[in-house]
Nucleic acid binder design. Structure first.
Length: 470
DNA sequence: TCTGGGGTCCTAGGACCC
DNA sequence: TCTGGGGTCCTAGGACCC
């Protein structure tokens, strides 16, 4: 979406249309979240202190964000994306990757462009806002294309033209290259994407470390085979506050940490999760920032436990001089609490006792029967079997849904489908033999639609959260 | 009136275990 | 007779993204 928050406010407030609008922190220490294109003319940018924006553009409308509105619009847009493909990976309220191949769109420029243009029209009529579309054979390239398409446009990167297109661009174009990486590269005489590729992988790894160096080298060559992964569960939940005036009173600091802990727990419970590691964050008067964390014996969503841990961590932090920001977070998220596990163990013990007391008559299926075999989590990579679609594996899961790719060691690369986590047609499966074909009847995976032109390096995308970082 | 809030991923050292 | 070689977990910090 183009200048999303600002555009949403302009759509909601006719008097602001065509005028500079700045959405962000309105207080003395606020920063700009989004500036409308009219405000950008004056040099106002995202992440700029609002005070500076006011100097550059005193006549703009300065508004606090209204996330309920943005979420509503976002949901409408995401719904349109899901009509295109089961594989939709939201990056934020206003941006998402869509795997059109998984949606059965033919991998031809004309067809893909038509889908993109129709999407833009649908977004316009559903929300009144404009969006931009980037189309390419890889996530990185699609993102660069959509950036180039803004505002209100569409750009296709034809397979084969990637290196020529990227070569002259600044390294900052590549996702993952921020100020620090760009400075490191600049000192090594590397400014453009072409120069990055010429530097070679070994040199980039030496400069930037293993993961970042190797990843950047691949990107510079236009190589990016990361799959689109939908339905990812959050890995941490945190809340933080910057105070208008630095806090110096130790008691006040303590009560603020308690309030933040409670807010964090509210979010945790709303998400139906619990966490095992509690972390506090302290930003001092001089902007120096530290974190302290503590891992509990088991996951919890108990406000008392998390409050106590947060305060315990605070005790060990020197706050003389003043505190600018405080934060409380929880990571190591689980779907169950320690208490749940105890309760579960207890009921399992009871069931065992019952079974011992009244053994099942031989051959009888019994009242309770066998409980349907359900995995506790649909872990990425897990083998599964679907009543209708046959054998496959979990490509990702979360938010009550699970995405499965239906293929076997001896089938062609397969298609992806999404189910509710409780779908009774889906069961855990056994690992299949890698050679020798399968028993009759398990080859129900659909043939793939994988045209050479859009297939990343001829290799099948690999699953899972672990694999998506390069 | 200089620098938000909510995330993700990576690195590195030490503890601990086999 | 200085010092193994993995692995995982925990903690802290940093870069980056929207």
């Amino acid at each position: 979406m183009d200048a999303f928050y600002a555009s949403a406010e302009q759509a909601a407030k006719p008097s602001l249309r065509g005028k500079p609008v700045v959405v962000g922190g309105i207080g003395p220490r606020g920063v700009v979240a989004t500036a409308s294109y009219e405000a950008r003319v004056f040099g106002v940018r995202s992440a700029m202190p609002t005070a500076q924006a006011r100097r550059l553009c005193p006549n703009a409308a300065y508004l606090s964000p209204r996330f309920t509105l943005y979420r509503q619009v976002s949901e409408a847009v995401m719904e349109l994306l899901h009509e295109l493909s089961p594989l939709v990976e939201p990056l934020s309220l206003d941006e998402a990757f869509v795997d059109l191949e998984a949606g059965g769109v033919p991998a031809e420029t004309a067809a893909v462009r038509a889908v993109g243009e129709k999407l833009r029209r649908d977004i316009r009529s559903a929300t009144g806002l404009t969006g931009s579309v980037g189309l390419a054979g890889a996530k990185m390239l699609a993102k660069i294309a959509s950036e180039a398409a803004k505002p209100n446009g569409l750009v296709v990167i034809e397979p084969g033209t990637e290196r020529e297109l990227l070569g002259p661009m600044t390294v900052r174009t590549l996702p993952g290259v921020g100020p620090a990486t760009a400075e490191t590269l600049r000192r090594a005489g590397i400014h453009t994407v072409a120069e990055t590729a010429e530097a070679g992988e070994a040199e980039l790894v030496r400069l930037l470390g293993k993961a970042h160096g190797a990843g950047l080298y691949a990107m510079a060559l236009g190589r990016d085979d990361r799959p689109v992964v939908a339905e990812r569960d959050a890995k941490s939940i945190s809340v933080e506050d910057t105070f208008e005036v630095d806090l110096t009173d130790r008691t006040r600091v303590r009560t603020e940490v308690l309030r933040l802990a409670d807010r964090c727990v509210q979010r945790l419970r709303a998400a139906g999760r619990s966490g095992r590691t509690v972390v506090i964050k302290v930003r001092n008067y001089d902007f120096s920032t530290l974190t302290r964390s503590e891992t509990l014996r088991g996951p919890t969503d108990d406000p008392g436990v998390i409050r106590e841990a947060a305060v315990r961590l605070l005790e060990a932090v020197d706050t003389t001089g003043g505190v600018r920001l405080l934060g409380v977070g929880v990571s190591g998220l689980a779907d169950f609490t320690q208490e749940d596990l105890f309760a579960q163990l207890a009921t399992e013990r009871e069931a065992e006792e019952l079974a011992k007391a009244a053994p099942e008559p031989a051959g009888g299926t019994g009242e309770g029967g066998e409980p349907e075999e359900r995995p506790r989590r649909w872990h990425p990579g897990l083998d599964v079997v679907h009543e209708e679609y046959g054998a496959g594996w979990v490509q990702g899961s979360g938010v009550g849904r699970v995405t499965v790719r239906f293929e076997t060691p001896w089938s062609a690369p397969g298609r992806v489908r999404t189910f509710a986590v409780g779908d009774p047609a889906l069961r855990p499966g056994e690992p299949l033999p890698l050679v020798g074909g399968g028993p009759e009847g398990t080859q129900s995976s659909e043939p793939a639609i994988l045209p050479k032109s859009l297939s990343p390096e001829g290799s099948e995308p690999v699953p899972g959260e672990e694999m998506s970082s390069r």
